[in-house]
Computed example of a mutant assay.
Amino acid sequence: MFDQAVKDLETFIHYATETYPIDSNKRYMLGFSKGAILSITLALTMGEQLKGIVALNGYIPEFVKTEYTLRSMKDVSVFVSHGEYDSVFPVRIGHETAAYLNDQTGRLTFKLYPTDHGVSEENQSDFLQWIKTDSDSYLIKE
């Protein structure tokens, strides 16, 4: 089911980009928990076809690292956050995810929040500001 979900999401991303006025150079994925797992996987498999991802309280399945064809993420921006008291995915997993992604891209932001498995208002505010700042960094300044 996971493999099919990844394929379906990639197909949808391409379909939406062709069908709607979406700049393919400015595509971001955002996910929480299982959605974060899928967002990270898509970044690893689509590489620089994505501009960036926001992964909230997720991780990278080991089989994705070993069985999937991975692409370069060196210019993909990544915001990873994790709850310090996450009862679903312990904070250690957040650190491991950030360390792995840090090796893949020079554009990683990693933040911890004093929460369980959820998204605090501070976390939401931080990733929204991160997206705005990241997307502005690619605009041509006159």
Rank of each mutant, 00 (worst) to 15 (best):
Thr41Gln: 10
Thr41Pro: 04
Thr41Ile: 08
Leu42Val: 09
Leu42Ser: 09
Leu42Met: 08
Ala43Asp: 00
Ala43Met: 12
Leu44His: 02
Leu44Pro: 02
Leu44Lys: 03
Thr45Ala: 07
Thr45His: 06
Thr45Asp: 02
Gly47Thr: 15
Gly47Ile: 06
Glu48Phe: 00
Gln49Lys: 06
Gln49Thr: 04
Gln49Asn: 11
Leu50Ala: 02
Leu50Pro: 00
Lys51Phe: 01
Lys51Asn: 09
Lys51Trp: 00
Gly52Glu: 10
Gly52Asp: 11
Ile53Pro: 06
Ile53Phe: 03
Ile53Ser: 06
Val54Phe: 02
Val54Leu: 04
Val54Trp: 02
Ala55Trp: 02
Ala55Asp: 04
Leu56Met: 09
Leu56Cys: 13
Leu56Asp: 08
Leu56Thr: 13
Leu56Val: 13
Tyr59His: 10
Tyr59Phe: 13
Ile60Gln: 04
Ile60Lys: 01
Ile60Leu: 13
Pro61Tyr: 06
Pro61Cys: 09
Glu62Asn: 09
Glu62Phe: 09
Phe63Trp: 12
Lys65Arg: 13
Lys65His: 15
Lys65Ala: 14
Lys65Leu: 11
Thr66Asn: 12
Thr66Ala: 08
Thr66Ile: 13
Thr66Ser: 14
Glu67Lys: 08
Glu67Ser: 04
Tyr68Gln: 13
Tyr68Ala: 02
Tyr68Phe: 11
Tyr68Val: 02
Thr69Tyr: 13
Leu70Ser: 10
Leu70His: 05
Leu70Glu: 06
Arg71Gln: 04
Arg71Ala: 04
Arg71Pro: 00
Arg71Phe: 02
Arg71Lys: 15
Ser72Arg: 10
Ser72Trp: 12
Met73Ile: 07
Met73Gly: 00
Met73Asp: 04
Met73Glu: 07
Met73Ser: 03
Lys74Leu: 03
Lys74Cys: 07
Lys74Thr: 10
Asp75Thr: 07
Asp75Arg: 05
Val76Ile: 05
Val76Ser: 00
Val76Ala: 02
Val76Cys: 07
Val76Gly: 00
Ser77Gly: 14
Ser77His: 13
Ser77Tyr: 11
Ser77Asn: 10
Ser77Gln: 08
Ser77Val: 12
Ser77Asp: 10
Val78Trp: 01
Val78Glu: 07
